[in-house]
């Protein structure tokens, strides 16, 4: 029998995304990773990564169909670290405007909207762009302002509470590229595709709260 928190690091499979790259990148940091879509595993996890690609509504449906929504809320209440990647980050907010209005997990006040057409700013926002820090977040240890990470998205998060914004990125506007409220972290970029800087972000997350 597995005891409470018998899964050090859980990678949630919502059925839409490609977990392979995230898993392989995490393996360079730790070998104690479990991939699962089972609600019971969520509450056994010490920390969770929620990767997401594709459309917001499909991702939320994937969580709902697997009965993962309530366990994720319960997990957050316990205070353990949770990291959302890309659409996984967007899911923390109240709703997204992608293909109509779709409800998110509603843990962070705010919403998700599309980049507006601006001259010379193409959508999707694809490629390497820079991180600028709002706060000294633990997730940003050993990362420098101006470091590049890889983005590939058309929608971005608009947190209602400016205090939830840990880092921004300039793409016509300064959009929220890292969000943090207490134990809940989200990154709009793909750390698993961002070479050394990305591995550092993931490593910071895996080592949160651990004394080195």
């Amino acid at each position: 029998m597995m005891s409470q928190q018998s899964i050090p690091l859980l990678l949630i499979d919502a059925g839409t995304g490609n977990l392979h790259s995230v898993f392989q990148t995490l393996r360079t940091i730790t070998d104690q990773i479990v991939i699962s879509d089972k609600p019971e595993d969520v509450l056994k996890a010490g920390r969770i990564i929620l990767p997401g690609v594709g459309a917001f509504s499909g991702f939320m449906q994937g969580l709902q169909q697997r009965n993962l929504v309530d366990p994720i809320h319960d997990f957050i209440k316990k205070g353990n670290p949770l990291l959302g990647i890309c659409v996984g980050m967007q899911a923390f907010f109240d709703y997204s405007e992608e293909n109509g209005n779709h409800k998110g997990l509603g843990h962070l006040p705010g919403f998700v909207q599309e980049f507006q057409n601006m001259p010379n700013l193409k959508v999707p926002h694809t490629g390497w762009n820079q991180l600028w820090f709002r706060v000294k977040a633990l997730l940003l240890q050993n990362i420098s302002p101006g470091d590049y990470v890889y983005f590939n998205h058309s929608y971005y998060c608009v947190p209602e509470n400016p205090g939830d914004i840990a880092a921004t990125t300039d793409y016509g506007i300064d959009f929220c590229s890292i969000v943090q409220r207490e134990n809940v972290y989200g990154v709009q970029f793909h750390p698993e595709k961002s070479q050394k800087v990305g591995i550092q972000v993931l490593s910071n997350f895996v080592n949160l709260g651990r004394k080195s």
């Binding site: 690609v53 594709g54 459309a55 499909g58 999707p124 694809t126 590939n152 998205h153 058309s154």
Partner: peptide, 8 residues
């Protein structure tokens, strides 16, 4: 695009 998103 419907399955994987335009960015893909």
């Amino acid at each position: 695009c419907a399955l994987f998103g335009s960015q893909c």
